[in-house]
Computed example of a mutant assay.
Amino acid sequence: MPDDVTKEKSVRLHIYLPQDEIDAIDNWGFKNRIRARTKAIRELVKKGLEADESN
């Protein structure tokens, strides 16, 4: 299990995204030196949730 995944039970999630959103995720990951798309998605979700909590 990758270091950045918590020790809690992980749940696999299948989603469909339009190509432009995949491209945006990949570009964001590249700019932030995140090699794996899955890790980039987890980081973006985490940032979104943290931003929502601050509102």
Rank of each mutant, 00 (worst) to 15 (best):
D23T: 06
K9T: 13
R12P: 08
A51D: 08
Y16C: 12
D23A: 07
K7N: 15
K39E: 06
S10D: 05
R37E: 11
H14D: 11
S10H: 08
I34G: 00
F30G: 03
A24L: 07
R33M: 00
G29T: 02
L17S: 10
T38W: 01
F30C: 05
G48Y: 05
I22W: 05
P2N: 13
K46L: 08
V45L: 10
E8A: 15
K31S: 09
D52I: 06
Q19F: 04
R42P: 02
I25R: 01
D20I: 05
L13R: 14
N55H: 11
L17C: 08
R33V: 00
D3P: 04
N32P: 01
E43P: 00
K7M: 13
A24F: 10
I15D: 10
R33L: 00
T6I: 10
G29K: 00
T6M: 14
P18G: 06
V5R: 15
V45A: 08
L44M: 13
P2I: 06
L44T: 04
R42H: 07
K7E: 12
D3H: 11
I34W: 02
A24R: 06
K31R: 15
K9C: 03
L44E: 06
K46Y: 09
R37D: 09
V11Q: 12
P18Y: 11
G29C: 03
D4Y: 15
N27S: 13
T6S: 15
A24E: 14
G29M: 01
A40P: 01
W28Q: 01
E43Y: 05
L44N: 04
N27R: 08
P2S: 15
V11C: 07
N27P: 02
D4T: 12
P2K: 14
Y16G: 09
W28A: 00
E43K: 03
D52W: 07
I25A: 07
R12T: 07
P18D: 13
R35I: 05
D23R: 03
D20W: 10
P2R: 14
M1W: 08
D4R: 13
D52P: 01
L49I: 11
I15P: 08
V45D: 08
L13H: 11
I34F: 02
I15A: 12
E21G: 00
I15H: 10
Y16F: 11
K9P: 03
N32A: 02
V11R: 13
D3L: 11
G29W: 01
E8T: 15
I15F: 09
M1F: 09
E53D: 14
L13T: 14
Q19W: 04
E43G: 00
I25L: 08
I34P: 00
E43T: 05
K7W: 13
V45P: 04
H14I: 09
K7R: 15
R35F: 05
Q19A: 13
I41C: 02
D26I: 01
